[in-house]
Design a protein around this nucleic acid. Sequence first.
DNA 1: ACTCTGATGTTGTACTCTACAACCATTCGC
DNA 2: GCGAATGGTTGTAGAGTACAACATCAGAGT
Lengths: 152, 152
Amino acid sequence: MTDRDSPQPDVRDESIEIIQREMTAFARRARATAGRMHPELSLVSFTLLGHLEDQGGCRATDLAAHYTLDKSTISRQVGALEKAGLVERRLDPADHRVHVLHLTDRGRDVLVQVAAARRIAFRERLAEWDGPDLARFAEYLRRYNEAGVTLR
Amino acid sequence: MTDRDSPQPDVRDESIEIIQREMTAFARRARATAGRMHPELSLVSFTLLGHLEDQGGCRATDLAAHYTLDKSTISRQVGALEKAGLVERRLDPADHRVHVLHLTDRGRDVLVQVAAARRIAFRERLAEWDGPDLARFAEYLRRYNEAGVTLR
DNA sequence: ACTCTGATGTTGTACTCTACAACCATTCGC
DNA sequence: GCGAATGGTTGTAGAGTACAACATCAGAGT
């Protein structure tokens, strides 16, 4: 209720409390929501495909590092994606340990479709927002996650 | 690249794209992060306890409805919390179907401690932010999630 | 050249979270 | 009272994940 060591700590704390609660609520719901929207592609698979698209192919280890997942998890996820025909594994001729991962045409296709569906959902959800608010929200999120990556 | 039907659609879309990406990234990481921070209390368990604290006790069905989880999931989660001594189930004397859930003293205790730890983590993560930015970010998140609950 | 070490992946195992369906117990409407 | 609805639990199954053990291969040191 009262100031302590810095100006308006209670106001800060209240904001932090809200941020914490809302981020938590969002995280709790995200997977289920994503699963309902696209049964074909889990949230994780989607982001993996996205990374492959961005990077134009990469190694399993890169994915593991980038997403802080165990290599066994990546191995199985990629295995599933491969079985689904969305990803191709090619032995690197220069180093026979590594499997270079590439999107297949079908993978690119599915990625595009799911991305479009997601974009529509987000657009709808944010339809009432004006441009400046969107821009600020985007910037805040980026800033928030950037810190997170560093801190872990 | 060019305007289409509304002013600056490309700027809006860019913001939306960022919001989508950052929210997704956050959701992907959240569980693991939360798990690492407090092995004692999963994200879900934490929010369940929190709801119990807020509501001062409620039924399993209420939790299921509020968090869009299956009643069987709630049943097992609550079972675990009960076994851990954090929650008490009492038969409602007025209706022997319902089990009214209450935090135990120990449950309240753990909740307070985990909440404190989370608060510290969030404070650290947001240490560089100034008050107005925090307030705006909090407001944006609230607004975003509010829309989500309605849409579902 | 040979060996040891490290990097890359895969597989076995186990645990958590979750949903769906079948079920039991209880209450409520008529 | 009886059938329908409500509240919960249990059986079963599947996704996602981690950790540990393992197999392969590359590279460095000697």
